[in-house]
Design a binder for these strands. Sequence first.
DNA 1: AAATATAAGATACGGCCGTATCTAATTTGA
DNA 2: TCAAATTAGATACGGCCGTATCTTATATTT
Lengths: 197, 197
Amino acid sequence: MAEKKKRRRGAELEAAILTAAWDQLQAKGYRDLTIEGVAAAAATTKTVLYRRWPDKARLVIAALSKFGEMPSYQGVDTGSLRGDLLDLFGQMAAVLAKLRTGTLRGILADRLDKLDLGQLMGKANTSHTVKELIQPMLDRAAARGEIASADLPERVVTLPGVLLINEVIGQRQLTVDAQVAMIDEILLPVFRSGTVK
Amino acid sequence: MAEKKKRRRGAELEAAILTAAWDQLQAKGYRDLTIEGVAAAAATTKTVLYRRWPDKARLVIAALSKFGEMPSYQGVDTGSLRGDLLDLFGQMAAVLAKLRTGTLRGILADRLDKLDLGQLMGKANTSHTVKELIQPMLDRAAARGEIASADLPERVVTLPGVLLINEVIGQRQLTVDAQVAMIDEILLPVFRSGTVK
DNA sequence: AAATATAAGATACGGCCGTATCTAATTTGA
DNA sequence: TCAAATTAGATACGGCCGTATCTTATATTT
């Protein structure tokens, strides 16, 4: 029974690390998760982690992508712009509900410079941007005659993402009421106002 | 020529620390400013700083309040809602222009949990909340008949602050174009839509 | 003026970050 | 098969955080 000095490498090692990261995230939450802690839990050293991910936020995002069961969003055609938006927000809320409180806020805080809602909330590989999700809805709405034009300004198209992020930051729950309110009080009025690009 | 063991205390000491913090902020920027560095620059120790401010963000906010020449915002009656908003945004932009790039973003990142635009952007003592700034404008607009009701939902009233913060986070400059766009494309349509609380 | 309370200053600690450097295991490919 | 290239793993470093503890100067109170 000699000690095996087997070394994990590549994908095997990476999977072990991400598993450890995921466990730590569940156990201690984002704030108290440390790179060194994950390394120790994965029975390796932080040097190895830093070779793969530049910081805690990116490590956790990788773990979320692998184990978080984050669906890639589908822009479903529900027949109305309001329905489409409600559906999208509902899907977002479902994802958020799976995250420990503070996880998203922590990641956001650490990544304030390079916000990318898609990469943050979708699978890393399918990274939708907010615009990619919203624009098709607007196109359909314009085709239906619900809104005057689908050619809206950048700031308007990305507004749903802004509202969503703000809601999360405000540590409020993303309740159904909040979703409805954002859509009826803000988004629909803006989209319908038809201020064109 | 005996060494004087004079100790600064209270306000005198505090002023010296905040001066040092302000200098460091100018010299190194928010990210590279450290509590220990400020303590050293002020010829004291971090123990003293921690007795007064709980973290870097709060220390810097205190320094900004003292030396940043941040005006407390005035809700000027320009005669129209659009004018009022433009005026407010213009004042905000002027304040932001005085800050080194990244300062506000850094503070935001460190304080994501307790966002308070007023305390952040106004003098600490006059801490306006967004609502306190916007509501009077809405009241006047309703009186003029520009909007149907001034009794708008919380989320709508605080929307200007959200847009502003988002603009800052996006490391974009708060240009006049951006101000106009936010107001014409988003805020006025929402306020005018008259969705009541 | 002496006793007491307060707060500054000095020092040390454990924790984590992010980097650098060295070694040795494992894979690669000539 | 054996040398070369990778890369895991170990270790150490300086930097900063935030806290605790102790001393001593200064202010307050009696």
